[in-house]
Design a protein around this nucleic acid. Structure first.
Lengths: 164, 164
DNA sequence: GCCTTGTAGTCAGGTTACCTTACCAAACTC
DNA sequence: GAGTTTGGTAAGGTAACCTGACTACAAGGC
């Protein structure tokens, strides 16, 4: 269940007009949050149902930029915009679940390579496939061009904001 | 700075192609998160700059459904989809900042009314105005209809997901 | 070859934003 | 007026981040 309530969560009351008005400006924030959370939850639900349990949205950062041949922690942490410590904790969790292992880097005695296990590699690929699948479902319901427009509009707004 | 890194955060390297491909499926999640965080941060930045410091995104839940004449904690917590305890903590923070006060409810000895102070009421109205302002800026850059389409598409996707 | 400086990763401890369980006191029910 | 419901608080836990301090290895200068 999403953490952010939206007006659709309320049953009709005599206060609906005022609530709707009060929430109107924040609505876009709530919508962005809900859709993101819904998408993430649905994805992990399907991944778990397919035999890859235990993974949480926050574990996504471990897989997002993970090379099949192994990646360094500092490298992944930087790409994720996270500290090495925070990232390391997620790696430890994902390792405990059996999706990655940490092996010493043969090229640098200080470093360790984070390498997906076969099971982890399958989960990684499945996750990407499921994202695509959900997007196809959206496209089937709303039209391909509207989903494409959504992505493009978000990208442009993000660029706009980053330029500030 | 947004917590979720996007490809635009990276400077060009020879690994860009692989990174872009790896991140492609998750991109929509990252975009949704970034845009939401950007919007929220920008809003609180402007609110703080206008003389209402100390407010954080999580305090939004206190103001979102707050009646100018006062509201009950349970009521607001339920509308926000939060426990009373969690909500109460945010109220305590916002009260410490001087934006609301808790007064006994004259109609129910158990209850307290959360009432915005004059300063808090100004902040509340300003916040809503700033959300509208930022949206107008987006509309100026991208076109009114694209921003409207963004909201509508998000709403439909959320409805779709909620129906599951 | 040593010595300084930089880098990879971990440890300890703190903060924020939630949660659950347990409780008190006032209010409603009968 | 006893029993149940409701408004709010207290205590304690967890997830997901952070900063500062540390160790082990690497690399460059001399």
């Amino acid at each position: 269940m999403p953490a952010i309530a939206t007006p659709t969560d309320q049953r009709p009351t005599q206060a609906d007009d005022r609530d709707a008005a009060a929430a109107a400006e924040q609505h876009l924030v709530a919508l962005l949050g809900s859709v993101k959370d819904d998408l993430l939850e649905e994805m992990y639900r399907r991944v778990a149902a397919a035999g890859y349990p235990g993974l949480r949205p926050s574990h996504g950062c471990v897989f997002r930029y993970l090379d099949v041949d192994g990646s360094r922690l500092s490298d992944l942490a930087e790409k994720s915009g996270m500290t090495k410590q925070a990232f390391g904790e997620h790696v430890a969790n994902v390792e405990a679940l059996g999706y990655v292992v940490r092996v010493p880097d043969p090229e640098d005695g200080r470093a360790k390579l984070i390498v997906p296990t076969p099971h982890g590699r399958e989960a990684l690929l499945l996750g990407r496939e499921i994202f695509a699948e959900i997007e196809r479902e959206w496209a089937a319901a709303l039209g391909v061009e509207r989903v494409a427009a959504l992505r493009e509009t978000l990208r442009e707004i993000h660029t706009l904001q980053a330029e500030r």
